[in-house]
């Protein structure tokens, strides 16, 4: 029971973090058709900036400043990079963002080195929020959940209640029509890219101390974010939300479950011994499979239902 509750809590937390990354990515992808490989790099940059700013000012200013800087950087990337590259088609865009991801990783290594930086939980959040089944749950995790939910509430309000939100929704499916009605679609693109990047940056700020802030964090999390948007369905924020939680929970549970096919077979009275063929295969624990599970879901989803759980676009 204790395991279930805590795995669920951690799974939801991981899922919310994934959604903060994937919401920006799916908005950018559905609107502009740009598969932004550098998205996770912006997430990493958010963590590093928060660490650096935090060294001078403490954690709280960094929470605001780091996403802001990353957001401005994202807007600049769209305005002076992607917009030019866009004329040469999607392959060029793909290569551009791919190059950008490598560039950011190298720059991060140049400035902060290859080893992880000591970006730790701020002392004001370093206490136990509550105790359940004799185990304490840290306050910073509760804080992460609150920040995420607050952010999504705000995003949802802007998207459904404001004029610019309606324009963004319309441009998700019909950018040409939105432009023909007189709305400056390139500027909307820049805005969305900026806000999406800022969200990635914010995810970095609050994810940085929960995970490890090192130059490989973009490479580790990046592919999983792509899995989320494919499984959730392109163009669907709700789909991305469901898929984020699903993958977050599945992966967290898998890690926590120390169980293999041998154990399963034993339940049915079948004993597998070292002498049997494929013994090594049977003996793999679910926990060992955890990192593979998202990609397994990706492949399965593409075969069974290519437009994802709630996708609205065919492509």
């Amino acid at each position: 029971m204790e395991l279930v509750v805590f795995s669920l809590l951690n799974g939801v937390l991981y899922g919310l973090l994934l959604f903060m990354l994937s919401s920006g990515l799916t908005l950018i992808f559905s609107m502009m058709g740009v598969l932004n490989f550098a998205h996770a790099s912006l997430f990493m940059l958010g963590a590093y900036l928060a660490y650096q700013i935090g060294r001078y000012t403490g954690f709280w200013p960094g929470l605001v400043l780091a996403p802001l800087i990353v957001g401005l950087l994202g807007a600049a990337i769209e305005r002076w990079g992607l917009r030019t590259v866009h004329r040469f088609g999607h392959v060029a865009e793909l290569l551009f963002t791919f190059g950008l991801a490598l560039l950011i990783e190298e720059v991060v290594q140049l400035i902060w080195g290859r080893a992880p930086v000591p970006y730790t939980v701020p002392s004001s959040l370093d206490f136990a929020a509550f105790t359940l089944f004799g185990t304490t749950y840290p306050a910073y995790k509760v804080f992460m959940v609150l920040i995420s939910i607050g952010m999504f509430g705000l995003l949802g309000l802007v998207l459904t209640k404001t004029r610019i939100g309606l324009i963004i929704q319309a441009a998700l499916t019909h950018p040409d029509m939105v432009a023909a009605l007189g709305h400056n679609v390139p500027r909307v693109f820049m805005l969305v890219f900026g806000v999406g990047s800022a969200l990635a940056g914010l995810a970095g700020v609050i994810g940085g101390f929960a995970l490890v802030t090192s130059p490989t964090m973009a490479r580790t999390l990046g592919p999983i974010v792509f899995v989320v948007i494919v499984v959730g369905g392109l163009g669907s924020l709700t789909g991305a939300f469901v898929a984020s939680l699903l993958i977050g929970i599945v992966q967290t549970f898998a890690v926590a479950i120390d169980f293999s096919l041998i154990d399963l077979l034993a339940r049915f009275g079948v004993t597998v011994t070292r002498a049997d063929t494929f013994y090594d295969l049977w003996r793999i624990k679910l926990a060992q499979l955890a990192p593979v599970l998202p990609y397994f879901m990706l492949v399965l989803m593409l075969i069974m239902r290519p437009r994802g759980l709630m996708g609205t676009r065919e492509t």
């Binding site: 432009a179 023909a180 709305h183 679609v185």
Partner: peptide, 12 residues
């Protein structure tokens, strides 16, 4: 740009 043309008074 299309949005500039729309602002001049052309509708599509």
């Amino acid at each position: 740009e299309p949005h500039e043309i729309a602002h001049l008074g052309l509708g599509y």
